[in-house]
Design a protein around this nucleic acid. Structure first.
Lengths: 193, 193
DNA sequence: CGTCTATTTGAATGTACTCAAAAGCGGTGG
DNA sequence: CCACCGCTTTTGAGTACATTCAAATAGACG
């Protein structure tokens, strides 16, 4: 598994000797998952913060009616997982699943603690990661509040062109907060233009 | 202005000598704002990350049609502001306004840089702050995707009882992602039960 | 008391959903 | 290679949730 991209990204934000990089990687569990496989199951406390090395994952929340709501598509280079459950050790309401065959690094919760203690510069790395993530979440919230489903779909296509190639439309619909039927109708309307 | 609560909160997460606390506070600008006053204006790059010492602020996004969308109500002890603009120095799309007479501490962007350099333990503080904030945002996203307007209103009442006392309903409606007229109809329906 | 804004009400409309069924598509086995 | 199966996507009709617009009412403040 090629972790060069991850290490060089880390080095953009923090100082890291080769020894320290090796230590960081030693705390993670590399894993290969096949399309459709689950990484984290509903109900159990989340054990891992997940870094996508290659491939693509998606995470979704299952509500009390049993309907799934896609929260995130995590492409190569992204971190994903259920932060709430990871932080507070409560049962997770989020499932993480591979959309394609993927390679991931799992960072267990206890390893995260060790990492932050031994290499405090990772506090900075995750501070920046979370800060950026917060900005992304803010933009999504604004979009959901102020923009129609059709415009959200167009924005999605523009922002994540590769995803539309292999992500089933029903998941894209769920991510956009609409039903697959309605997305289909939006697409028909757009086609006729 | 009483900053004891802030300092003791900081001390829950990081080690801080009295001298260091004083240094931190010296980087901030204390300010009193009256009800209705704006702290950050639309269009200009955001200068400050804002800590609410007392009172309550709200931040809202203005879309291209000129409609406002409330993003956050920031009560005492919270941080608020436009992180996107603060981080990337682009023009802000978010306005921050005082809902009640309030006391705030402003942390300018350059002071934040100095702070993180001189007292790296603040990387940890903000890492934890952003991590928690991300969890809150995630929950709100899930709510908006899976729960009806009526239920969102009930959840809001339950979560922020004090706010309903003095926040105009139209802002609550905006926060919930609905029109004031529709909130009014929801309320009538709930009353009749 | 008058003015300004917030809230409520009602009617008409629109956006998105539900349900049911048909069509398309990919894989698997005979 | 074709037939069948299971799943995704599309279609259509009927419906529900939420909006728009216009106007009335209520509240807050000087």
């Amino acid at each position: 598994m090629n972790t060069d991209n991850l290490i060089s990204t880390l080095k953009q934000y923090i100082k890291l000797t080769d020894e320290e990089s090796t230590y960081f990687l030693s705390l993670t569990l590399p894993m290969r998952v096949h399309q459709g496989e689950m990484l984290e199951k509903l109900g159990e406390p989340t054990k891992y913060f997940i870094h996508v090395v290659s491939g693509c994952l998606m995470s979704y929340h299952t509500d009390k009616e049993g309907t799934d709501h896609v929260l995130q598509f995590a492409q190569a280079g992204w971190w994903t997982g259920d932060l709430a459950s990871y932080t507070t050790h409560v049962g997770s309401t989020i499932t993480t699943r591979a959309l394609t065959d993927s390679e991931v690094l799992l960072l267990p919760q206890t390893s995260m603690d060790q990492l932050l203690e031994k290499l405090p510069q990772f506090e900075r790395y995750f501070r920046i990661l979370f800060q950026k993530s917060l900005i992304t979440h803010g933009n999504r919230l604004i979009q959901n509040l102020s923009v129609s489903a059709e415009e959200r779909y167009l924005a999605f296509q523009k922002k994540y062109p590769p995803l539309e190639q292999y992500v089933p439309l029903k998941y894209i619909a769920s991510y956009l907060g609409i039903t697959p039927e309605f997305l289909s109708k939006i697409r028909r309307k757009l086609m006729s233009k």
